[in-house]
């Protein structure tokens, strides 16, 4: 048995009155793609904020590769091999696509000699090498998302936290992103994925954690989760309501 990349125990985050995460447990095994799903405001991005050190947890423990890392800084997380693609893609607007990705590589875990190689590999894997010299400002949503993932990947992370990488993508772009994530996993990077696109989640994930209003309500394989009545009620149900309401 290999050691889990990430272990979450009793993780809790309170924002004044609001409990955004309530004693959540989860384990991300090495070499897998795990999912984190739940309705809007369930606490998914908050989970990533805690794991990456952007926010300190109120309670609970986070272990990365067996080491307790609760309350670490974003820099410590980054240096240790946790990369993140933000929900709202945040490339450096004034720099080119290549400069963006290269900064990921420069401060990541590849040695100084590997910076250009890591940059080229990440650009190619996301299929944006043709855009390398274009300014990040003014890219389409699809390209921005790919740039966001490429920059995270260039750091040669151990764990990639991808917050809705398919949001705003058309079906063809979604397929490309799914294929890219699979190739990233095959390259040895463990992935934890937040995604509303059910096709992406069900097709990609080995295990899924479902949260609703900060609480874990189900956990298991995609099949198990999809068949769970609590999930259907809390998550798929609300999706349907949204769909009908719209």
């Amino acid at each position: 048995m290999t050691e889990p990349v990430l272990e979450i125990r009793g993780l809790t985050k309170r924002f004044r009155g609001l409990v955004a995460l309530d004693h959540v447990d989860f384990t991300v095994p090495e070499g897998t793609i795990c999912g984190l799903i739940g309705p809007n405001g369930a606490g998914k991005s908050t989970m990533f904020n805690l794991v990456t050190g952007f926010l300190p947890p109120s309670e609970g423990e986070i272990r990365f590769r067996g080491t307790p890392v609760t309350g670490w800084s974003p820099q410590q997380a980054g240096r240790s091999g946790v990369a993140r693609a933000f929900q709202i893609a945040r490339p450096f607007p004034g720099l080119t696509v290549r400069q963006n990705v290269r900064i990921g590589a420069l401060f990541g875990r590849s040695g100084p000699r590997d910076v250009e190689a890591a940059t080229d590999t990440a650009l190619a894997l996301l299929g944006i090498e043709d855009l390398a010299d274009r300014p990040a400002e003014g890219l389409t949503v699809g390209h921005l998302r790919r740039l966001e993932v490429a920059r995270a990947l260039a750091a040669r992370p151990v764990l990639l936290l991808a917050d809705e990488p398919c949001a705003g993508l058309n079906p063809a772009e979604t397929d490309a992103m799914i294929a890219a994530l699979r190739r990233i996993r095959d390259g040895g990077v463990t992935i934890w994925l937040v995604e509303h696109d059910m096709r992406a989640v069900m097709g990609l994930c080995d295990r899924i954690l479902v949260i609703s209003a900060g609480r874990a309500i189900a956990e298991g394989t995609p099949g198990e989760v999809a068949a769970n009545p609590a999930v259907i009620a809390a998550y798929l149900g609300s999706e349907e309501q949204e769909a009908h309401g719209a």
């Binding site: 952007f54 980054g78 993140r84 945040r90 720099l95 401060f107 990541g108």
Partner: peptide, 11 residues
Amino acid sequence: EDEDTARMLAV
């Protein structure tokens, strides 16, 4: 360009 993202990238 973006100080928070820079932190995440371990700058």
